[in-house]
Simulated assay, not measured.
Amino acid sequence: MTFTLRNFASPRRLGALAGLVALGSVFSASASAASIALPEKYKAQGHLTIAADATYAPMEFIAKDGKTVVGADVDLGKAIAKELGVKADFVNASFDSIIPALQSGKYDMSMSSFTITKKREEVVDFVSYMTAGTSFYVKSKGGPKVNGLADLCGMTVAVEKGTTQADDAAKQGKECVAAGKKPVTVSVFPDQNGANLAIASGRAQVGMADSPVAAWIVEESRGQFKLTGEPYNSAPYGIAIPKNSGLAEPVLAALKKVMASGEYAKILHKWGITQGAIKDPAINPAAQ
């Protein structure tokens, strides 16, 4: 049995565009019409190289042509780059490799559904741009009922390498053992598609992913999967930027302009993720 995500926009709409467009007025006073001061390095090169793990629809995934990275993060990244007066060049990269690559200067920034944590903020800067929790999904027929992390004891869980879900499942496994229960078997895969295949083939019982991604996986599975339980630990997504690059403040300013123009609301509505909208983007909010 195989499972693949269909690479086109879902008809799912999780919120009304009208409500989100009102967010634009929040930023009308704060988003200056003046041009944003971008460090000369980025002006000279004329583009931002942006890394994304393109297996995480609807946030970032590969289009039907088999090579183009598309998704909500891509659309937002292009809108931000436009406000900065440069182009956005998205590059597909494995999720766990992105932060080290940012530290080495390989990429200018990353938009790849990064949950902002204090640990991650120690090595890169983040500009928050939306929120998401974690959801559980299982096979529609015969899949277990999972209401929360405590229900994972004795189960095999499929997760993507380097994600907060991988950390959560491993931590819960230790708690299960400490409580005298069966451990959690955590199967870690290089990308989200591998985790999906493990569940479809019966090698894993439960999948964990960010809530908008899990909802997309279920919808695009043609009835193979279903959500179970409720999302937990809602937290901000962040645009990851190398420390001391001088790029965090300009990106924040550009994001505020994208919000003020109404483009932010349109992009979230297009991809059915309006429930993740925020009003107050910030730099390194986990450390505050």
Score class of each variant (00 low, 15 high):
131 T>Y: 14
4 T>D: 09
66 G>K: 11
88 A>W: 06
61 F>A: 06
224 Q>I: 03
45 Q>Y: 00
199 I>M: 12
243 K>E: 14
250 P>K: 08
49 T>C: 02
180 G>W: 01
56 Y>L: 04
59 M>H: 05
33 A>T: 09
96 D>E: 12
184 V>Y: 02
99 I>N: 11
222 R>L: 06
211 S>D: 10
18 A>V: 02
140 S>N: 14
224 Q>E: 03
145 K>D: 13
91 V>T: 02
158 A>S: 11
141 K>R: 11
94 S>T: 14
140 S>D: 09
96 D>I: 13
114 F>I: 13
62 I>D: 00
233 N>V: 03
23 L>T: 06
237 Y>C: 05
209 A>S: 10
248 A>R: 11
128 S>P: 15
66 G>D: 10
181 K>W: 00
167 D>V: 07
99 I>V: 15
46 G>H: 00
223 G>D: 07
274 T>A: 14
246 G>S: 12
211 S>G: 04
50 I>S: 04
236 P>Q: 02
244 N>L: 13
204 A>S: 08
16 A>I: 02
26 V>M: 02
9 A>Q: 12
273 I>A: 06
256 K>V: 07
84 L>V: 14
38 L>Q: 01
193 N>A: 09
195 A>V: 10
96 D>K: 14
269 H>L: 01
71 G>K: 00
183 P>I: 06
237 Y>G: 02
263 E>S: 05
20 L>K: 06
168 D>W: 07
219 E>S: 07
55 T>M: 05
75 D>H: 00
26 V>H: 06
281 P>T: 10
253 A>T: 08
49 T>S: 04
254 A>I: 09
1 M>W: 14
82 K>E: 10
105 G>R: 15
187 S>Q: 08
68 T>H: 01
225 F>K: 08
228 T>M: 07
201 S>M: 13
161 K>F: 02
270 K>Y: 04
77 G>L: 11
189 F>N: 13
279 K>L: 09
29 A>Y: 06
174 K>W: 07
68 T>W: 04
192 Q>L: 15
190 P>V: 13
212 P>Q: 04
13 R>C: 05
89 D>K: 15
175 E>V: 09
225 F>G: 08
78 K>Y: 09
64 K>P: 06
119 K>W: 11
240 A>M: 00
246 G>F: 09
85 G>N: 05
33 A>P: 03
106 K>F: 14
50 I>E: 05
137 Y>L: 12
227 L>H: 00
30 S>L: 10
224 Q>A: 07
25 S>C: 03
